[in-house]
Design a protein around this nucleic acid. Structure first.
Lengths: 183, 183
DNA sequence: TTGTATGCAAATAATTTGCACCAAA
DNA sequence: TTTGGTGCAAATTATTTGCATACAA
């Protein structure tokens, strides 16, 4: 049996792929996230507010992936000092992304954020057992991407690569909940 | 200024990357999607119903990406012949994915489905202007993936790669709505 | 002063779920 | 018959939005 072809194509490329195993270094950036954000706000005629200042500290204090809900959970509650409404949290997270401080992507339906400013480009391994995200960096991947894009007349603005599987630990502990290895 | 390192690492790999530009061929599969699904149902003691039979036809009649909403739109309405409730559509789409007939992934917040059974593995280029998805195939990408995974002790079950950018046509027509080149 | 920004609550949007009824095997 | 399947409507979840008020510039 046979299906109609869609817009599929291969691309041509021959190159030597090289990567190194040095630990990935944080980038040196001249401005702190906060300074960078202030610059962003100024350039657009937006305002500095206590909420924005507080949120940028809160976000850059942690160094892991998070979603809006997790962030809100570790912020002061309504009534407490420095409380920020969730509406504002959502609005501000988007601004952080616009400002280039954070990156966001979709995983299992929710929006996941991670620090971008001050961190090198990287991609993810996702363990479908424990749902943990691991990071890796690969220059060849980026080259491959550019090659594919060029091949299709695309001007690249970015990419998102997630490798799904079972991480080392979960591979050992077969006893770990299996569920359905969701995509 | 300097940030704490996270779980970042590079990996070691040296290889020759080769790809070809032959148009990608549909796979030859011995069973039709419908037969394949019937097999799946039987193996799990599930039932064949008119809704399931109808949906599999509807889904495999088209050969493009779609989301639940688009699918429901082109199905018979309530009251008409062969009407299927949206709840059942959602439930059945998930079964199709379980059965390996469809693949699903998240894009701009919604769940996008595409035919899997009978089609070769591939990845996507996404135009952030016209929001169209294009497909490409790259063996080196898969090798790279396996290498990275092995490097991290991962047992791979799959991956998702989306290259974002502006497609050829939208690159020409600067007049096309620009908005914010959303991720 | 003047127009953003924020908090609150209501509105969305996309799915999922509870439940009574229907229908394969 | 028995147990899974379906339709309907209500419930969820994650966000977004309208609007009156607060506040930075």
């Amino acid at each position: 049996m046979q299906f109609y072809p869609r817009f599929l194509s291969r691309f041509e490329l021959t190159e030597i792929v090289l990567t190194s195993s040095e630990p990935l270094q944080p980038l040196n950036v001249s401005l702190s996230p906060r300074e960078r954000f202030e610059e962003y706000l100024q350039s657009r005629g937006l305002r500095q507010t206590s909420q924005r200042r507080f949120l940028i500290e809160a976000v850059f204090q942690e160094h892991d992936h998070f979603d809006a809900d997790e962030l809100i959970d570790r912020l002061p509650r309504r009534g407490e000092k420095n409380y920020v409404s969730s509406a504002t949290v959502y609005r501000t997270l988007r601004e952080f992304v616009d400002a280039g401080l954070l990156k966001s992507f979709q995983l299992d339906g929710r929006t996941v954020y991670e620090l971008d400013y001050g961190y090198p480009q990287h991609d993810h391994l996702y363990c479908t057992r424990c749902r943990q995200l691991f990071e890796f960096q690969s220059d060849p991947l980026v080259k491959l991407r550019d090659q594919v894009a060029a091949d299709h007349g695309f001007r690249v603005t970015g990419h998102r690569m997630i490798i799904q599987g079972v991480c080392r630990d979960c591979g050992k502990n077969r006893r770990t909940k299996r569920k359905q290895d969701l995509v």
